[in-house]
């Protein structure tokens, strides 16, 4: 029943969807690693990105690749503005005890953004069938063009993020600030700027994914909830605060979901993921892909 071509299809499906989860998780992990807050509004950044994409591509008629760039850039600005306007003042005022307040603040942002979307756009779903209709055939394997597009987008973004963090001055400064903020400051790194840029990057990633996945997840006010849940799963499996771990755990989760959907009876998909999360938390709480570390 399950021939090679079905397996290949499931694998491609799982990896492409999973890479998106991985990027959502990587954004969460970046923000957590630098600012120490779990951004509960991360799903809403995804939601805003999806709306931005829909309006740029479908209402304004901008070509899809440019619409993607617009939405990503817009979400970067939203992220920077959120950090500068809401999170930074809280951090300045509350000294070292601001973390819980920062966490609660992001819950507030989540609720506000969801309801704003409901008021402005209403409850209806804004989606599209596909940016690139049609399909590719490789022998028995049939892949929709949309899948190819999503897979390429996910791999490209993952690669770009990895290169950015690994090879650029700014990327190194972000990693350094996450590990030892005081030492980074002494070397001349303005960590306030790093905070804002990091939040912007996390938001831009969420926005880009919300845009790319518009055919899978249409834009509606609470679309972020499910995606945020996946991002949390990825972050737990990959190791809290580990960007690389999240990028690896994403495809793993995607594969498990894809195979579970195909091989297990309906409804087991989420149970299997939840069991995996439980197993990781009990057996390897530091995550599958990260060494045990202690935060200073």
């Amino acid at each position: 029943m399950f021939t090679a071509d079905v397996l290949i299809q499931l694998t491609i499906d799982g990896v492409s969807r999973g890479a998106m989860y991985g990027l959502m998780g990587a954004g969460l992990a970046l923000i957590f690693g630098i600012l120490g807050i779990i951004n509960m509004a991360h799903g809403e950044l995804f939601m805003l990105g999806a709306y931005a994409m829909y309006f740029a591509a479908m209402v304004l008629g901008v070509p899809a690749p440019i619409a993607l760039l617009i939405s990503t850039a817009l979400m970067f600005c939203v992220g920077v503005a959120m950090e500068r306007g809401l999170i930074a003042p809280l951090r300045a005022r509350l000294g070292s005890r601001w973390l819980v307040d920062g966490y609660v603040l992001t819950i507030g942002i989540m609720v506000v953004l969801q309801n704003l979307a409901l008021i402005v756009f209403g409850p209806r779903e804004f989606g599209i069938a596909a940016f690139w209709p049609g399909r590719q055939e490789f022998g028995d394997v049939v892949i929709s063009n949309e899948r190819v597009l999503i897979l390429a987008g996910a791999l490209f973004t993952t690669g770009a993020l990895a290169l950015f963090l690994k090879k650029t001055n700014l990327g190194r400064a972000i990693r350094a600030t996450a590990e030892h903020p005081a030492a980074a400051q002494v070397l001349g790194i303005n960590i306030e700027r790093i905070y804002a840029i990091t939040f912007g990057i996390g938001a831009a990633l969420a926005g880009a994914i919300g845009s790319l996945l518009l055919s899978t997840y249409p834009a509606y006010p609470t679309v972020g909830g499910e995606v945020l849940l996946k991002a949390f799963v990825v972050v737990i499996i990959g190791g809290l605060g580990s960007v690389w771990g999240a990028m690896l755990a994403g495809p793993l989760l995607g594969l498990i979901e894809a195979y579970a959907t195909a091989f297990a009876p309906g409804g087991w998909q989420n149970t299997i993921t939840s069991l995996l999360v439980l197993a990781v938390l009990v057996l390897r709480p530091q995550g599958l892909f990260s060494r045990q570390v202690t935060r200073p």
């Binding site: 190194r172 990693r175 590990e179 030892h180 005081a182 030492a183 400051q185 002494v186 303005n190």
Partner: peptide, 28 residues
């Protein structure tokens, strides 16, 4: 002065305890 302005002024500071970035390579 903010700590992040030290380097631009030509002041280097070895702080108490360790200050390497453990997850970054020696070169980085």
């Amino acid at each position: 002065l903010q700590p992040s302005q030290l380097a631009a002024h030509g002041i280097a500071y070895l702080m108490e305890g360790h200050s390497v970035f453990p997850g970054l390579t020696v070169e980085e």
